[in-house]
Amino acid sequence: MKIDRFELDGSLLAGMLTNIPAMDGCLLNGLVYYYKKTKETAVRDILVSYGNTWIDKDGSLKSIEDASFAKFYAGNVLYFLYEETQDERYRKAIESIKAGIEKKERTKEGTICVEKTASDLAIFRALSNLLPFYMRYETVFHKKENYNDVMLQFKNIRDRFFDEDKMLYLKEEASLTDMAWFALALAQTIEATSEEIYEQYHALQTMLRESIKGMLAYDKLEEADASTLFMMSAAMLMGCRERALLTEKYEKKADEMLH
């Protein structure tokens, strides 16, 4: 699919949203970035309207998907809504989602689990949803006090999933889509990390670079579907913006993936 020009149809978008965070997370995150770039009021209105359907008047979450890790990914939009509106309901909702992290079981290495019996792959996917939200919470609201815990999650993911020979996160039958999602999570986490904790900021940049290079060299890249390529492209473009990736080397590749 070739995209020459990207236009938003507000009514079409509103219809695409299901009010189920697990399903809406990608679109919501994309809309936030789109609004930050274009400042189109219609997009902001969609996001605010979505927030109102997801959050009660007192800030409690309405969605029945409360236990889902997917809500963490959708939850990224709450930071934007709080910043835009200063409405304390969104702060409360963020705290409520964050509280869910503290309730989760942990492996003996300290990895946060979806549930006690979750497979490693399920944990990998869940953490790709959770970690950008968690890092942003620590940066914005918690004085970075749990940065070490966030980094521990990334370390444990790498230890468990990264194949040093193939330079890819493909152990436990992780797919290219899983890898792309993880790369996007890394890019968003870098965006949410304070550069003043530089050793951790840099470590995440290095992980993203390693992840992208591995995928680009993967012999099965040609089989990737559109959504996988879009995620990889987004991760690369964000990586360029955060200077984790050299723009000269990666921006064009990212652009080609969109076309």
Partner: peptide, 20 residues
């Protein structure tokens, strides 16, 4: 600033002990 071969770095700016 990353080197072209992505193996090294060039540091110019700094703030409170970090290369920023």
């Amino acid at each position: 600033i990353q080197s072209y071969d992505e193996k090294e770095e060039y540091n110019l700016g700094t703030w409170e002990g970090n290369p920023l």
